[in-house]
Amino acid sequence: MIEVKNAVKNFDDIVAVNDVSVDIREGSIFGLVGTNGAGKSTLLRMLCGILKADKGSISVDGEDVFENPSIKENIYYISDDQYYIKNYTPKDIMKYTASFYPNFDKERYNYLINTFGLPYIRKINNFSKGMKKQLSVILGVCANTKYILCDETFDGLDPVMRQAVKSLFANDMQKRGLVPVIASHNLRELEDICDRVGLLYKGGILFARDLDDMKLNMHKVQCVLPEGFDLAKLRELLDVVTLETRGKLITFTARGSREETEQKIASFEPVFYELIPLTLEEIFISETGVRGYDIGKIIL
């Protein structure tokens, strides 16, 4: 398990990660979402031991990760801008990576390179962005580490490849207990693949919950309430996150279980109401909106 306790990371005057605490449990895919500059990449770089926390602690399987090679052998990090040594071919990078990761599966690597249709002896620097991403995923999977940290890895992959990568992760999770940690802006992608999501905002983590719990505990409601209904009463009774009115139609998101929400709306004797399932993107916008990141101010 990866445990982050009160981790702080400053870059000069900028607080990149601010008092973040989160647990990444085994047997799940953890998604790390957040606004631009929220500190997702920084947190990932801390998790794999590139950066040292200024305060707090980051431990993997009970041990501090920074400058701890035996722990880092269980972590493979895929950067958003992965570096490949000049003039290296997939064959060369396999040898290089295998020299650091003792459980590297060369046979599977060769198989996957063929399956993904990547040239084995062409220079990686001549690869397209998507091909480089595929290669980095293959390397990461074949390194046979317990944890794989992916920073915007799905960007640049076509839908077919995305699906292939997802199935690779799923397969390895099932077979050997791989724990992928995926940072991304693409909330729809994360929604499909992640079991648990951590939402970062301005360096701090807003929450880290199971995706199912999250969806079950937040609802989007469209309703038409009786004439003269006081919206303050709505806010008073429900834990409203966002609220929007268009004519008589009121749309709001509120925290709470489905039954509880329905019960309270029914007590308002609405003309009409409907509970719509929330996407992760809507949850993200709602939660960050509460903290002042109003999407409406950005999208004009």
Partner: peptide, 16 residues
């Protein structure tokens, strides 16, 4: 002198 290179080498399981 390059962030992605530094990240690559420092993420490897090897003591500095």
């Amino acid at each position: 002198h390059s962030r992605n290179k530094t990240d690559f080498y420092h993420s490897l399981p090897i003591k500095r």
